[in-house]
Each structure stands twice: as structure tokens, then as C-alpha cells.
Design a protein around this nucleic acid. Structure first.
Lengths: 339, 339
DNA sequence: CTGAAAGCGCTAACAT
DNA sequence: ATGTTAGCGCTTTCAG
């Protein structure tokens, strides 16, 4: 049967008090050398593992953090999770995954887990707070860090990329290749992230003196099939674009597939730029030109920020910005001919 | 400030004993109606949340399960996670993700978490137990369910697919199309799952009286780039195959990309079949013919099995088999010409 | 440097 | 139907 040795058992076995065992095992440095080793040995031999519930109850902390996302099913979050986890582990924390499925009920649920001691802090990547009355007030001062998304007026520390600048550069790349009729498939509006990317698109277009014709900014939702559908719409316009900047890779995949179905070559006939640099974006055909976010690093930063919030010494940054990179690959080229 | 109301506070506020409050809130059905409501109201108003550490310490359970995978970064596990989570939630359990990175140290770590009360049970998807001496013995009787993979002689209940039969059907499909020179890029050997899939390939070939020439079974590791490399090898053979059955989709993507680079058309010149049916497999070009596993259902089943193990009534199945489906898509066709 | 004693917040006997 | 009491396993004062 599983041994289930407790601190008391070790104490008895070694012939000291439970308190001493505790001190020895937590590495407090208050136990003398002959005893210390004997305690460690005994613990080892008895396969001792401190009971976390007891410890947590006593210390009033769980040494766990909560990472809350909209949809665990989205591979996008995986690398971020890795970054969070790596940094968390090093600091002795474990990571719980929370999944809101965009359900407000679930969101407050995870906030509650902070209060019931499930976790000591939270990394929020859902782009919003529960609407429940007064929540935005209660949140201030909680050990919460926001990543990826941005929550207006929440006052919470966050780690971000510059979505607008990154999008602007992506569109500028298209313009530089000679494209003039450039469309943009957006993310869900009015979410801030989508708006930022749209802003980048608009600014790049404006700066180049290019018009944005009616129908050139269809509103998407980051899903594959929406990319297909909106692309179809785009190319049934009287004056279809020669290039499309898509707000995320998944929709860009859909768009490219749809173009192929319509008999159009990418990048021969149409150039496509995505956003995210998913795992399979370079394995895609053609390899997708896209904005790459340092996802792992974002996760690490977010966790480091949270650790800083935990430690009461010093002041934690209220915002951290991470760099992005436009990966030039095979889905963009100069437009075929003069329009 | 966060309220941090405890059971004692509610008791005082309502004018009953802490025990009654506990009984009311846990829904034991032992509290009379006038009191019951008053307690509930008070709890609500004070934003009361039972402290999990205290409760877990007292009840000796954590109401959490551990789902341990080789690599959280692999999207393959996501849908399984969803299945596990859905079922777990319904039963009041939360799910902790564990990541071994194929590191034996980490594996025992997660077993330890069972003993230290972090979790009440575990769903193992790593295909192995820690080698540490005597571990396989200790494991017997622990609340552990194995999913996807198989652990020889562990005696642990598991939920599986029939890898061999599924692979056989995949290869039979190729044979049915008229292919005779069919190669197989395997998974990592000697892992059981890889061997099973290879067995399926060999049996199908044998049953059709087809030879397996030297070099037709390169050993892979499920990674994209390995698929590319091994495919290159395969097509520098004197007699290259006209079809390839690849042990997973990720390597199949790599193989197809490599074929394209070599100027070969899929499926015109070469047919490719994968295994897994990843999220992007149908968005790939060409859409990948592949073996689909019911991942979500596998997760649900695994969790249900674990719940059965928890409840001491009745006997839990020692194995559950889930069906697979060969998805016929665009990466397979009849061979171009007679060899 | 070590021991004794208290208590984290909750639930479960046991009593009434 | 409710109150009293004890204790889950650990850490941490407070003494010595």
C-alpha cells in the first residue's frame, strides 16, 4: 500500500520532534548537521512527501498559478503555456489551465479560484473581465497579470505585442511589393486586438495614399471556415484585391484554400499575409508569410511579471512589450500585372 | 480588500454553529428550511468561498485529476484534454496538466503528486512508467488510467484504439487503389504504438502478397522534419514507392512538402496516408487522407474510467477500445502508370 | 539548535 | 435538526 508517511512518523523514526523534521525538510537552515542528514535519509527511505493541503492550509498559499484562456483547444496557446510553465516550475509553482470557452460564468469561476486558495495568482488571456457588477473594482489589487490581450481600464499589469505596428509592417510589405488593392480580413470586433490590427492596416494604407474600397474589410472570428467564406466574398467583388492581410493564420489558411479552389494561385495571383506564425505555417503550402509573435517568451514574461507581483519588494512594471517579426515566406509576391 | 469570509463568520452572522453552516453549504440535506436559506444568503452576501486547502485536508481528497502527456506543446493532446475536462467538470473535478517532456524524472514527479494529495487520480498518456526500481509494482492499485498508449504488463486500465487494424485498413486502401510499392515511415521504435502501426502495414502487405523492399520502413519520430528527411531518403532509392503510409500526420505533412520540393505531385505521382487527423489535416493541401481517432471521446472515456476507479462500487473495465475511421481525402489516388 | 503547543479552515463523529 | 468537539498534517511562534 502507498506508504503515506507523515512528518510525525519521520520524527518518531529519527527520534526528534515533528517541528525539527519540518525545519530540516523545508531547508530553513536551522537544523544541525548530524540530525539534518538523518532526517533526510529517513524521509527518503520512507518515500515521504509533504501533504500539500496541510502545508497550503498552514502557509496560506498554494504555490500554483492559474493560466486562463478562451479555448484550451487552440494550439496558439500551447507555446505560451510552455513559457509560463518553465518559469513557474523554476520558481516552484505549478500551473493550472483554465478554459473559459468565452463563457462569462466560467470567467468569474476562475476569479473565485483565486479567493478559495486554489491558486495564488492568475495569468489572464481572455481579453476581458467578468461583467458582473463591481468586478472591475474588486479586481484591482488582485495578483493578476494580463497577457496577449488588453483589458481597457483594468489597471492590471500586462505583457503585450504592438499589434498595430506589426500589422502596419505586414501591410507595408505588401505595398512594397507593388500591391495597391489590399484587403483585410479582421478578427472579431470590437475586441481590442482586432481593432489594433485593423488600425495598422488602415494606417499603412492611408500612409501610402491607398483607398480602402467598400467590402475590403470583412469581419472575421479567427476560424478557418470563416477565412474561406470571407475570401469567397472578397473575390466576388467587382474589383477584387490582389493581396489580403488576414488577422490570423488560421483564417489565412482558409483563405488560401479557397483561393486555390477558385483556381487562383498564391502568391502568383494573390498574395496573403497572416498573423501568429502557427506551428504549421511554415509547413503549409505555400509557406505562409506572417507576423511571428514570441509566444514562449510572452509566457515567460507574464509569469515573471506575476512573480514580481507576488514578491512585495520593489515595483512591478505595469506593462511589458514584446517584439514581433514579419516572416517573409512563400505566400507573398509582386502582383501579376497592372490593374 | 478581498473579503476572505470564513465559515465561522457566516455562523456568527446567522447565529448558528459552524457545523450547521458547513452542512448547509455542502448540501448534505440535513439543515432545516428557515436556517438553510438564511445561511445561503449570508454566504452569498459575504462572497464566501470554502477554502480548498482546509477542505481537502479534512476530506483527504483534492477533487483534482492529473492528465500527464509527453509534450503539452503537441496540439494532438488538446482535444483529448477537452474530453477529459468536460467529463471531469461534470463530476466536480478539476484537471491539472502534467508535462513530462519525455523526462523520466518528471514522470516520477507526477506520480508523487498523487501521493502528496495534489490529485486524486491520473490519466497517463506517456506510454511508459518511470523505470525506477520497483515502480511498476507500486503502481498497481494506484488510481491511474492509461490513455492512447499502452503500457505492457502494467495491469493498468486503459482506453485505446486498435492501431494495428486501423493501419491495416489504411494500407489496404492504398493497395485497393492499385499501389504495389508502398513504403511506411514508422513512429519511434520500440514504442508499442509504433510497432502496432508497423504491424498493420506489414500484415496488409503480406496479405496482398506484396514485398517490403529494403529501405521501405524508415524509422521516424513523429516530427515534421523527420518526415521530410525520410521521404527524401525513400525517393532516392533505386525503386522508390508510389505510395507512403506515414505513422502520423505531422510527418506526413513533412513528406508531402518534400515531395513537392522534388517536383512530385501528390496524389498524382505519389499517394500519402497519415494517422491522427490533426486539426489542419483537412485544411492542408492536398487534404490529407488519414486515420481519424475520436480524440475527444477518448478523453471522456478515460475520465469516466477514472471516475469508475474512484467509486469503490462495481468493477471498472480493464480496457476500453474506441473506433477509428479512415478519412478518404485528397492525398491518395491510383498510381500513375504501371511500374 | 531543538521541543512544546497552537492553529490554519474545514468536516464528521458523537451527542442532544 | 443543530451544537460540541476533535483533528486532518503541517509550520511557526514562543520557550528553553
Amino acid at each position: 500500500m502507498s506508504s503515506r508517511a507523515k512528518i510525525k512518523d519521520i520524527a518518531a523514526s529519527v527520534g526528534v520532534s515533528p517541528a525539527t523534521v519540518s525545519r530540516a525538510l523545508t531547508g530553513s537552515g536551522l537544523v544541525a548537521e548530524p540530525t539534518l542528514s538523518r532526517i533526510r535519509e529517513a524521509a527518503q527511505k520512507m518515500h515521504y512527501r509533504p501533504n500539500v493541503s496541510a502545508r497550503n492550509l498552514r502557509t496560506q498559499r498554494s504555490m500554483a498559478v492559474l493560466m486562463v484562456v478562451r479555448d484550451v483547444g487552440n494550439p496558439f496557446y500551447l507555446e505560451i503555456l510552455k513559457g509560463v510553465e518553465t518559469t513557474a516550475r523554476e520558481a516552484g509553482y505549478s500551473v493550472l489551465m483554465g478554459n473559459t470557452e468565452n463563457n462569462p460564468e466560467r470567467e468569474v469561476e476562475y476569479f473565485d479560484m483565486l479567493r478559495d486558495g486554489h491558486a495564488d495568482g492568475m495569468i489572464l488571456m481572455t481579453g476581458k473581465l467578468p461583467d458582473r457588477a463591481g468586478y472591475s473594482e474588486q479586481v484591482r489589487g488582485l495578483p493578476v497579470v494580463v497577457a496577449l490581450e488588453e483589458i481597457a481600464e483594468s489597471g492590471l499589469p500586462h505583457v503585450m505585442i504592438d499589434n498595430e505596428a506589426a500589422s502596419r509592417r505586414a501591410v507595408e510589405h505588401l505595398i512594397g511589393l507593388g500591391h495597391r488593392r489590399i484587403a483585410h480580413i479582421t478578427g472579431p470586433v470590437p475586441e481590442i486586438m482586432s481593432l489594433r490590427r485593423q488600425d495598422g492596416y488602415r494606417r499603412a494604407m492611408a500612409a501610402a495614399g491607398l483607398p480602402i474600397p467598400e467590402g475590403y474589410e470583412p469581419v472575421g472570428d479567427y476560424l478557418l471556415h470563416t477565412g474561406e467564406r470571407l475570401c469567397r466574398d472578397l473575390f466576388s467583388l467587382a474589383e477584387p484585391p490582389t493581396a489580403v492581410f488576414v488577422a490570423n493564420d488560421e483564417m489565412a489558411f482558409g483563405a488560401i484554400n479557397e483561393l486555390r479552389r477558385m483556381g487562383l494561385d498564391v502568391p502568383g495571383d494573390v498574395s496573403v499575409v497572416g498573423f501568429d506564425d502557427l506551428f504549421l505555417s511554415q509547413a503549409f503550402h505555400p509557406p505562409l508569410t506572417t507576423v511571428s509573435q514570441p509566444r514562449m517568451a510572452i509566457g515567460q514574461q507574464a509569469m515573471e511579471l506575476l512573480l514580481r507581483v507576488f514578491s512585495d519588494e520593489g515595483v512591478a512594471p505595469s506593462a511589458v512589450e514584446m517584439p514581433t517579426e514579419l516572416k517573409l515566406r512563400g505566400s507573398t509576391a509582386a502582383p501579376r500585372a497592372q490593374s
